[in-house]
Nucleic acid binder design. Structure first.
Length: 259
DNA sequence: ATGGCCTGATCTTCAGGA
């Protein structure tokens, strides 16, 4: 079974490329982030034509997550129980379901904006709620994984130049501690192969020729429990999908499982 | 090759992304 996670930066803007990529990659289950659409605008019909069904947690122009599957989609849960709100709103940043015997979450962790910003505290609270929400499944025997845009680079090796990020979000000790606390409930990082260069990045800014210069970050992660990681046969970042016109600023992370 | 931001809405300007 081939599972992937992909921050599409608008599923509407990405749809032609996304549909082509789903077919060419042979992906069975896709965890989507930043749909940037309402539930009504989600392209169910186009995906169904390719044999996929989808579950969506989306409310409009910001955020939004989905699970797209051709191997079943059962027991869908929207959102994060006991999750914090931001400015009085429960943002659509999490969805979970069981696909082909694997329990999967697609998450879009809050950005944080700046270390002193309210959004940063919200980000840390959101991580705490996520760890609590997945603890029971992470400790279980069923293959289980949280996939998505975590908006944290786990180590300095996961950014192209740590000095550029001094004092910034995505690399702060508190954010990395929050990730560590998530691993502590029974999850580990499924580290992908790079298809080029030494390190596998998953995001490159649209600006300043960041992609051609490989000024990237690894912030899209796959955190699986023991039953999940034990079934992994391969994982890689499909940087080819970051190339060219109409690309997202993220690349898909692909994981192959033998269950 | 991969090329100096992109997206959607508050829509010709801006917030948000990271």
């Amino acid at each position: 079974m081939r599972i992937a996670t992909y921050n599409v930066n608008s599923i509407t803007a990405r749809l032609p490329r996304l549909l082509a990529w789903l077919e060419s990659s042979g992906t069975d289950v896709l965890c989507v982030q930043e749909t940037k659409c309402s539930a009504e605008q989600f392209p169910h019909a186009e995906l169904r034509e390719l044999g996929y069904e989808a579950a969506v947690n989306a409310t409009g122009r910001w955020n939004g997550v989905a699970l797209v599957s051709k191997v079943g989609l059962a027991d869908v849960v929207l959102g994060l129980s006991e999750g914090p709100d931001y400015e009085g709103v429960q943002e659509p940043r999490a969805i979970s379901a069981t696909c082909g015997g694997v329990r999967l979450w697609s998450v879009y962790v809050p950005n944080g904006r700046e270390v002193a910003h309210d959004h940063y505290g919200y980000k840390l609270d959101w991580f705490r709620a996520l760890a609590a929400a997945v603890a029971e499944d992470a400790a279980g025997e069923r293959p289980f994984a949280v996939l998505g845009d975590f908006n944290v680079a786990p180590t300095d090796e996961d950014v192209y130049d740590p000095s550029v990020f001094e004092g910034a979000t995505h690399v702060s000790p508190a954010e990395r501690t929050a990730l560590e606390a998530l691993r502590a409930v029974g999850l580990s990082d499924v580290f992908p192969r790079a298809l080029k260069y030494d390190r596998p990045y998953t995001f490159w800014d649209y600006r300043m020729l960041a992609f051609p210069k490989n000024r990237g970050m690894r912030i899209d992660l796959v955190y699986g429990n023991a039953a999940f990681t034990g079934a992994v046969t391969d994982s890689y970042v499909d940087r080819e999908e970051r190339k060219g016109k109409g690309a997202s600023d993220h690349a898909p992370v692909v994981v192959d499982l033998k269950l």
